[in-house]
């Protein structure tokens, strides 16, 4: 265990130099790079915290927006529902009105159809009745009935009112028209003379009388003097009988 002062002194100096060398070439570069990395990490952490804080803030803001949006949506939904209800009510009222109008129109149309149908039915019934009666009367149309109707004709001619007589007179004098007498059965000479005398006597003038047979009259007579026509036959009676019934409808 020897001790050398030179070695002791040089060792102290050497160690101090070694400290400088390591500090210059090892500690400072490595510590600098470590500090720089730590600074970068701290900066990254600070940025991350700042971003996190911003994210939290944005999240809260977004949640607030969502709540407001939800409220606005509910309010808009309620308003829309109210407007839809109002529109629905209005449309329903219009639809009911149209329905009522359509119902009234259909009811009127149906009523009109019904009336027309009833009218047709009645006309048909009247026609059938008239046909039936005319067929029945055609079977009853006999010379005896013709005789009775001739008597009624004479009675009617005798009871003509003044207006009819004036019309006949004007027709005979003004138009010099012959008188057309149609009968369902041929008239006897007696009947012709009787009828001529009845027709000519009131007017004190002579004019021709044309006697014709017309079996469509069924029974009876039809006398035509110009515009004046006397219907004294079953056909026209049935027609007169059926027309008032139709007119009543």
């Amino acid at each position: 265990m020897d001790f050398d002062w030179t070695t002791f002194t040089l060792e102290v100096i050497n160690f101090l130099i070694l400290i400088w060398i390591l500090k210059r070439f090892l500690y400072q570069p490595v510590l600098n790079i470590i500090d720089k990395r730590r600074a970068d990490i701290d900066q990254a952490m600070a940025d991350a915290k700042r971003i996190e804080a911003e994210a939290v803030s944005l999240k809260k803001q977004n949640e607030q927006y969502l709540i407001e949006w939800e409220n606005q949506k509910e309010a808009a939904h309620a308003q829309l529902a109210a407007e839809l209800a109002e529109i629905r009510k209005k449309k329903l009222a219009e639809l009911n009105q149209k329905f009522d109008e359509e119902t009234d129109r259909r009811r009127i149309l149906e009523e009109r159809r019904r009336i027309e149908y009833e009218k047709k039915i009645e006309e048909k019934a009247i026609a059938q009745g008239t046909k039936f009666v005319s067929r029945l009367l055609s079977r009853l149309a006999t010379p005896e009935l013709e005789t009775h109707l001739f008597a009624l004709l004479l009675e009617d001619l005798a009871n003509l009112d003044e207006a009819d007589k004036r019309v006949i007179s004007e027709a005979v004098t003004d138009h010099a028209t012959s008188i057309l007498v149609q009968s369902a059965f041929p008239l006897t000479d007696t009947q012709k003379q009787t009828l001529s005398s009845v027709l000519c006597e009131p007017y004190q003038t002579g004019f021709s009388i044309d006697f014709q047979c017309n079996d469509t009259l069924l029974a009876g007579f039809q006398i035509t003097v110009g515009p004046w026509v006397l219907h004294a036959n079953l056909r026209d009676e049935l027609k007169f009988f059926s027309q008032p019934l139709q007119h009543e409808k």
Binding site: D2, F3, F8, E11, V12
Partner: peptide, 14 residues
């Protein structure tokens, strides 16, 4: 070097 007392004494002095 540390097996020498001069060296360890220098380090101890430091």
């Amino acid at each position: 070097p540390t097996g020498n007392l001069s060296v360890t004494a220098g380090l101890a002095l430091l």
